[in-house]
Design a protein around this nucleic acid. Structure first.
Length: 555
DNA sequence: CTAGGGTTAG
């Protein structure tokens, strides 16, 4: 048997594995091929690179790269294109760029590859820069290039560029090709241009199931579950067969409606179609049960095939337990995950750090902070914000402060977390001076900022400051106070004996006062011995639905 | 060799 022929059959085997999703086996076979000293060929290399990108496994991808260099395959444009994709999928952005830069005659395929890789890799800006650069260099984009660029427009909410791509497609007759429409629909949905998404959909002559999915998903994304369900019904009436993505798009609609019964029956449909073993369908199902309050069923489905669980499954369970107030269980899942060497990602941490705060468990909080530092997420603003919140709820304002001070990037939530940290720990004047600092530094403030300041005023009995703050919230910033702001003000005024003013404030409320508002006033009536007003308030309280709010504080 | 829709958090 000639070694060349041998090499070809190895290559065919490798790409066969890749095609069927057996990426690890494909890579093992590639290693075996090297050990057996079989002559390499592009087919084997392409397969191995694809496998390394899909897993993703950067180390083995680099091995394949080095091996191709040594075997003189590195001038092959196909191999280079596959290298770019592999590096991008493994998150090695700079390497992907470097390989791409070394391609001498970049063809439209190579350009499309780097654009789609970066668009999918959380680097939408970079993807669009490549699109621009490509045009500068005089390479004409084809429909695949443009379809690849659309998700980048979507992620950046750059509807202007999205529209001009749409326009260009229209002029180049690409629009007749139905395969560009789902990308357009998704892009318009994500840019909150539902009319345009709908128009693209409605004008399609033959509506591919992918186009339906894009629109259904758009509706669930904007919290319009009923519209999503109606489309789902329409799709089924056309006789088209829904696919996995249809269910991934429609299951969250039942979660939004908290409709356990209908949701479960759609879960049944996924079983009927045989889609229930698809990981994304399964994860959407876990989320469905958890959001409908039946986290036990989520856990049952999760535990049944835990070996198949991916990071999203674990995160869904953590979030599911948190959503149902089973904070300890969320922590158990997180520890199990660590125990099984599943690496928590950003979403895992954003979900679990509040659990430490909730349990007032400084031990967990410190451990999580450590992990955050070790895993390189420490510069993420959302993680930082939850750490500040955790430390202040655990009574370690010093740690919260230190963390806040060294944050290089802060957003409004960071300031709000610090501010409410001061407030809940009784450092009312610090809270108020932080608020002044926000105003001086022109940091955007929101309703939560004001709630923090008002609570500080309440705890400190700072009536004048509270009035002034409440007033500036409405008249200076044009923000609408919610029921919590009112409850805070009523409590502040009431405790200070300004019962009439508190009463007038309630009467002027543009929204219905709830039990916490009335409860604050009632407490004040008792405190100041105003039984006449107190009786009136009791009457109001009695009118509220019995399950509304808790009155323990006031009664 | 490049592609469209799709799960977790905020």
């Amino acid at each position: 048997m000639s070694s060349a022929r041998d090499g070809v059959s190895w290559g065919t085997m490798i790409s066969g594995y890749v095609h069927n999703g057996f990426f690890a086996r494909a890579l093992d076979l590639f290693d075996a091929m090297r050990i057996a000293n079989v002559k390499l060929n592009p087919v084997a290399v392409l397969g191995a690179l694809k496998a390394a990108g899909e897993i993703p496994d950067l180390d083995r991808g680099e091995d394949v790269h080095n091996y191709s260099v040594r075997n003189g395959l590195i001038f092959d444009i196909e191999v280079n294109t596959a290298l770019v994709i592999m590096y991008a999928k493994c998150g090695a952005t700079e390497k992907a760029k470097a390989v791409f830069a070394n391609i001498h005659e970049k063809d439209v395929v190579a350009w499309s590859a780097i654009i789609s890789s970066f668009a999918q890799n959380g680097s939408p800006k970079q993807a669009l820069l490549f699109l621009k650069e490509m045009q500068v260099q005089g390479v004409k984009p084809n429909r695949i290039t443009l379809v690849s660029a659309l998700p980048a427009c979507a992620e950046l909410s750059d509807i202007r560029l999205g529209k001009s791509i749409h326009c260009f497609m229209f002029k180049s007759d690409m629009i007749l090709d139905g395969s560009v429409s789902p990308a357009l629909i998704a892009m318009y949905c994500k840019c909150e241009s539902f009319g345009l998404a709908r128009a693209v959909f409605d004008r399609l002559n033959s509506k591919d199931v992918v186009a339906w999915n894009a629109l259904i998903n758009g509706y669930t994304q904007i919290d319009e579950p009923l519209e999503a369900l109606q489309l789902f019904r329409q799709l089924r009436m056309t006789g088209k067969i829904p696919d996995c993505a249809t269910f991934v798009a429609v299951l969250p609609a039942f979660a939004l409606l908290s409709d356990l019964k209908e949701g479960a029956s759609v879960h049944g449909m996924t079983i009927k179609y045989g889609f229930h073993s698809d990981l994304r369908v399964k994860n959407a199902t876990l989320d469905l049960y958890a959001k409908c309050g039946d986290v036990q069923t989520s856990h049952k489905l999760f535990a049944e095939r835990k070996a198949c669980a991916d990071i999203v499954s674990w995160n869904t369970m953590i979030a599911g337990y948190m959503h149902n107030g089973q904070v300890k269980q969320a922590m158990v899942i997180f520890h199990q995950m660590m125990f099984e060497y599943i690496k928590p990602n950003l979403v895992s941490l954003v979900s679990i750090i509040p659990a430490a705060a909730c349990l007032v468990s400084l031990r967990d909080g410190f451990a999580l902070h450590c992990y955050v530092v070790k895993s390189g997420f420490v510069s993420d603003v959302r993680i930082g914000n939850s750490l500040i919140d955790m430390y202040s709820k655990c009574g370690r304002l010093d740690c919260a402060q230190t963390f806040f001070d060294q944050m290089t990037q802060k957003d409004t939530t960071s300031w709000n977390s610090m501010l409410s940290g001061y407030s809940i720990n009784g450092l009312n004047h610090k809270a108020i001076s932080l608020f002044s600092q926000m105003e001086n530094d022109a940091i955007e403030v929101d309703a939560l900022t004001y709630l923090g300041v008002l609570s500080a005023c309440r705890h400190g009995g700072l009536v004048a400051k509270g009035r002034e703050t409440f007033d500036s919230m409405i008249h200076k910033k044009g923000l609408r106070p919610n029921v919590k702001h009112y409850a805070c003000m009523v409590d502040l005024l009431g405790r200070a004996g300004q019962l009439d003013e508190a009463w007038r404030l309630i009467q002027k409320m543009p929204i219905d006062p709830d039990a916490s508002v009335w409860g604050s006033l009632l407490g004040a009536c008792r405190m100041h011995g105003n039984s006449k007003l107190g009786e009136m308030v009791l009457e109001q309280l009695a009118r509220l639905a019995p399950n509304e709010g808790t009155l323990c504080g006031a009664l």
